[in-house]
């Protein structure tokens, strides 16, 4: 973690999750798991965020919101899809209102497995996202355009 120069802030949005993963994302921020030790805090403002943590599959109405939030986050940014619903639609993939995983709407960098995803796996996912964020930042400094 020594290469980490900035404190990455996360923005969490529930695309159509059952809440299971959402409350586990919040649990990561509270004393037992405490991701603030990595300098991570949960913000509600897309302009403050570096990591977009998204739970649940995409449905007809949430896809616009997800796209909007994604576009508002400044580059470099990383998307972490938490839970199997965010990966593929999960147990709900055959529901009439579910389009599929988050990658149907925006590019995803890290997938976190689980139903509901455990806080330990979410932290693993976010730590993986931190190194991707750092690579993207370096790429941007060289003048390249990261995804």
């Amino acid at each position: 973690m020594s290469y980490l120069k900035k404190s990455p802030w996360i923005l969490h949005y529930d695309a159509s999750s059952c809440n299971g993963c959402d409350i586990e994302v919040l649990a990561c921020l509270t004393p037992l798991y405490d991701v603030e030790r990595f300098g991570i805090i949960n913000t509600g403002n897309p302009k403050h965020a570096d990591i977009f943590v998204i739970t649940g599959g995409i449905n007809e109405q949430s896809s616009v919101v997800v796209k909007n939030i994604y576009d508002q986050i400044p580059s470099p940014k990383v998307v972490v899809a938490v839970g199997i619903c965010a990966a593929t639609g999960g147990v709900f993939r055959e529901c009439y209102n579910i389009k599929g995983g988050v990658n149907t709407t925006i590019p995803v960098d890290v997938y976190v497995p689980g139903c509901a995803a455990r806080p330990e796996s979410i932290i693993d996912g976010i730590v993986a996202a931190l190194s991707i964020l750092e690579e993207k930042r370096k790429a941007m400094k060289k003048g390249e355009t990261p995804l």
Partner: peptide, 14 residues
Amino acid sequence: IGYIHRGLEKLVEK
């Protein structure tokens, strides 16, 4: 409302 509607009640048919 409608941002997280999945339509899971209909899954009973499947």
